[in-house]
Design a protein around this nucleic acid. Structure first.
Lengths: 227, 227
DNA sequence: CGGTATCTTGACAACGATCAATGGTGGTGG
DNA sequence: CCACCACCATTGATCGTTGTCAAGATACCG
């Protein structure tokens, strides 16, 4: 039992133009390329596909009547997104960094059909999604601002970071507002927390969207304990 | 991308004793009965089954190293729980009110096999779970204490309430601590919020676990707007 | 009936939100 | 090429909600 706020809009919005439609061994899946600022799907759209992010980043959001927004997740390369509820999407999906996306017909998630391997991969991704979201509950419900931001940076470092002169480095494709809405904080608190981590010498910011981690242990500590 | 805290224990714990093992048309599923305080599975257990709650209530929890606990969900009659991650359970599941549980072999979720209808039902439940959890994000990240508690009561009223002299009535099988850990609050705040709703005449408590809703509209308002 | 859990209430402190202003950056047009 | 503008990020000051600590009340169980 969750506490649910059903909001069902009714738009319809197909996936973007394909640049190539190669055949998998057994069943079609479609490559598409999307530019920053475009939309992959909206809440309420008919869910004909699930999507794999191959490059770039996407943002999944849900909006409450009163305008309060929650960023449900960021889709990074390797992530599978757009699991349908019934036959509809239940989030908006926006491209926040030029992305290559592979679209799999929903049927490939539901039945083995001719490609049992992809079926299993998509199903595993769905079950994994449940676990990942459960972990995120812990974060939203039980962590302080510093712990939230530090945890967030750790994940990004692990997933998209590159080693450079003794530190991990990565870029933040999303705005402070997106981070805030993902972590259940305000923009100001996110910004202040970045500054705090900077003052502690744990990270530095070349630009507001370029992070260097200088003290990985310190970041881990900050992600676990308010101290 | 979620911010994940992987904790993987390694116990193994089978499902409880069966009282009956009727055959479905095509594939076995097992009925079991469980008493308050017992466990259905633990985090890290091999996940041989997914479970349907037929009566009673269960509680799904996850615990952080430092002892902070998050109640992931309550399982009420009709809910399907215990979706595996890989081949393991990733939450603890405790019985909080005597429950009848049906266990379905995990295989019935993964492949159509001989019973496509059950397969589809379990798969739909998994996808539904994702949506429900997304809604719960909104709650944890973006709602005040009053809104959280009011939303919580509304769901329980809708799912388990019975009409009685002009008001909805239902019981709370879980403790204040469970509610707090579900909503990301403290016991004290939950208690205070119940009192507030009582003072406003929206609800009354016959016993601490018996709720009557007198002003449904007021409860809906409280669940949406702090006012 | 007594003991223990749980729930409620109170006083206070702290964390994060809010309101407000400043600083920086990128894009556009003069 | 520079000036201007719009947007985003940062910083500051203050307020409010919720957490914390502590005590008391109520319900549950043997």
């Amino acid at each position: 039992m969750y506490v649910t706020h059903s909001t069902q809009t009714d738009g319809t919005h197909g996936p973007c133009h394909a640049i190539a439609a190669p055949q998998s061994r057994k069943q079609a899946h479609v490559w598409t390329r999307h530019t920053t600022g475009s939309h992959l799907f909206h809440e309420g759209d008919a869910a004909a596909f699930v999507y794999e992010v191959r490059s770039g980043s996407v943002r999944l959001t849900r909006v409450l009547e009163n305008g309060r927004r929650q960023v449900i997740a960021f889709g990074l390369p390797g992530d599978i997104i757009g699991f349908p509820n019934g036959d509809r999407h239940h989030t908006d999906c926006d491209i926040i960094a030029n992305a290559d996306i592979v679209a799999y017909p929903r049927r490939m998630l539901e039945t083995e059909g001719a490609d049992p391997q992809t079926h299993q991969r998509l199903l595993d991704a769905a079950l994994n999604e449940i676990t990942a979201m459960q972990d995120h509950f812990m974060m939203l419900g039980r962590k302080s601002a510093v712990e939230k931001v530090a945890s967030f940076l750790l994940v990004l470092a692990q997933r998209t970071g590159t080693l450079s002169d003794g530190g991990m480095m990565f870029s933040l494709p999303m705005s402070r507002a997106d981070i805030a809405d993902f972590l259940g904080l305000t923009v100001e608190t996110v910004s202040r927390t970045f500054s705090l981590l900077r003052k502690r010498g744990i990270i530095s910011l070349e630009t507001p969207q370029t992070v260097s981690v200088h003290d990985h242990g310190g970041l881990v500590a900050a992600s676990q304990d308010p101290e």
